[in-house]
Structures are given as C-alpha cells and as structure tokens.
C-alpha cells in the first residue's frame, strides 16, 4: 500500500531524509520509530503530499505522491504531529468542513461524521468550540478527521503524544481495531507503544533506516544470544555436562545451592524448551526456568549507538 524507493529530502544543504526505502503491506500496523529530528515527520509529509521529495519516489495506494498528489491526498487519512485545528470552529462545523473539502455530499458527510464521532468518542464534544477542548479531545478531533472518508491508508504522526494514560490505551485499542481495514503507518519515539501495537517496525536515525523487521526479529538481533536461567535439582557436574550437550548452547555457568544447581546459560536458540525436556527426562525437579528477553529498548539504543559509531568511523576514514 505504501512503497518508498530511495527517498531523499534536503532542506538547503541539510539532509533530513537520506535515501530510505520501505513498504507497508495492506492491513498491517507499521511503527516508524526514531529519536526526535530523525526524519520521521519529513518522510510522513512527503507521503501525504505536503512536500515533494528531493529525489526518489513514493507511491501510496498505487498513486505517485508527486505526479498524482490529489489522488494520494484523497485516499490518505492523515493526522499531523501538532494536530493543527481552527480554534474558532465547533467540532461538528470542523468535521463538516473537512467532509466538504473531501467532496462528500450531505448524506455521506452526515453518515461519515456520525461514524467517526462514535469511533473517536467525540459525541459530548460535538458542539464545543475547538479552542476550548483539552489536548486529548483535540487529538480525537484530528483522528476523526483522518478517518472521515474511510481512507485506504492511515498515516499518523505521533498520535499519542500529550494524551493521558487512559487515552493512550484507548487510542492504541482504536488503532488495532482500525488496522483490520486500513494499513497504518504511525510514527513514535516511544518504544513501548510501538512494541505494543505494531507488527513491523522501522527504525530511522539521521535520515536513514537503520533497522526494520518484526518486533521479534529485532529483539533477536540484539545480541544474537539469549540468556536462560534455570535451577534444577541434581548433581552439579552431571547437570552441567548434560546441558552443555544440548544443541545451540554456547556457554554454561553453574553454581551449587544445597542440592540444587543454578545454571546461567547462553544459547543461540530457544534453550528453554530443551532444558525443560532434559530435566523431565532425567527426573530432575525444576525450581526456576526463564529466558531473559532482550527488550526493544536494548535494540533501539544499540542500533542508534552502532549507527553513531559507524558514522564516527566513516569520518575517521575520510581524514
């Protein structure tokens, strides 16, 4: 649904987006993750037809963002980062205005507004001036606007910034629900959020995509190795040798604890199951067996640090 090829954007000499490529498949939620100033908003603005790229191409729902800008704009639902709205308008007036801008006739507009209002819990704010609304309500008005025309693609720029925890949870639930009909690309600098709702993640840093994949793939990349902690009831030497023989085990450290053997295992695969089966086979009781899951946070930090190191290295080379 979204296809980006070698997209670059320069503001004067400053490079905001540097030759990125990615695709978003139908009915998936893709999280666009990166520190502030990484190029997320610029990429999103190119995809929504707000600004043209310096080079490269992007297609949204089959339309080129430069050559068929109006077609792209009519099928995309877009929530800009700061949720700009007209403070002097009432919520209903605003949604009605946006419906007209999208060329909907009155019956379609009324039905669309009713549906969007219900989905975004806006019913009680409908007649209030936007200028008096709280941040959470403003966000919902923006989201209702983005959903109004049943877009083929939803592009949301930091949709949960400034919301309270309940609203964040509600918004995430809504996004998951919406992903059933629309592919969603949304940006965020909050890891937990991306981890909670996205099927795929793109990590962008200084205008480049430095990693992409599913949550699990990215986690697996953190160290390559997993750490399994196990405590089995059995003689230390026997337990240690048996575990070492299992497939994929890199290293085992064992300590005795009054008849129990505490193992700290580094493995290339999911050693948890193997250890569990081994213990069952030998009749060793199991007191603890857990796999330390590397968090996405670890990955994020590692990816960005790696990128910085590579860059520093490149600068050294140039000298």
């Amino acid at each position: 649904m979204i296809e980006v090829r070698n997209l670059s954007k320069y503001f004067g000499k400053r490079c905001a987006v540097n030759g990125i490529s990615f695709t978003v498949e139908p009915n998936t939620i893709v999280g666009f993750l990166g520190p502030n100033g990484a190029g997320k908003t610029t990429t999103i603005r190119i995809l929504t037809g707000y600004m043209p790229p310096t080079s490269g191409t992007a297609r949204v729902a089959g339309h080129d963002v430069v050559k068929e800008s109006l077609a792209v704009r009519s099928v995309v639902g877009y929530l800009p980062e700061a949720v700009p709205l007209y403070p002097e308008m009432r919520v209903y007036e605003y949604l009605n205005f946006r419906g007209k801008l999208r060329g909907m006739d009155r019956p379609r507009r009324e039905a669309a507004i009713a549906r969007a209002v219900e989905r975004c819990w806006l019913a009680e704010a409908l007649t209030r001036p936007i200028g008096q609304l709280s941040r959470g309500y403003r966000q919902r008005v923006g989201l209702a606007d983005a959903l109004l025309h049943s877009p083929k693609v939803l592009i949301l720029d930091e949709p949960t910034v400034g919301l309270d925890p309940t609203q964040v949870r509600e918004t995430r639930a809504l996004l998951r629900e919406l992903a059933a009909d629309h592919p969603i690309l949304f940006s965020s600098h909050t890891l937990s959020e991306v981890e909670a709702i996205c099927q795929r993640i793109l990590i962008i840093h200084e205008g480049r995509i430095i990693a992409s994949g599913t949550v699990d793939e990215l986690k697996a990349q953190v160290g390559g190795q997993r750490r399994v902690i196990a405590e089995l009831k059995g003689p230390q030497a026997e337990v240690t040798t048996a575990v070492q023989k299992l497939a994929g085990i890199v290293n085992v450290r064992a300590t005795a604890d009054g008849g129990w053997t505490r193992l700290d295992i580094a493995a290339n695969n999911n050693a948890q199951n193997a250890v569990s089966e081994l213990a069952a086979g030998r009749g060793w009781a199991v007191r603890e067996l857990r796999q330390e899951v590397p968090s996405l946070e670890d990955f994020f930090v590692k990816a960005i640090v790696d990128a910085r190191v590579r860059q520093a290295g490149a600068k050294e080379d140039r000298r």
Partner: peptide
Amino acid sequence: SGTFETLMTAPV
C-alpha cells in the same frame, strides 16, 4: 497555526 498543513494534504 499549522492548519496550512491540513489544507495542503486535503484533496484541494
């Protein structure tokens, strides 16, 4: 106010 962005990304 930034509403320029919402106008420019609407099919107008």
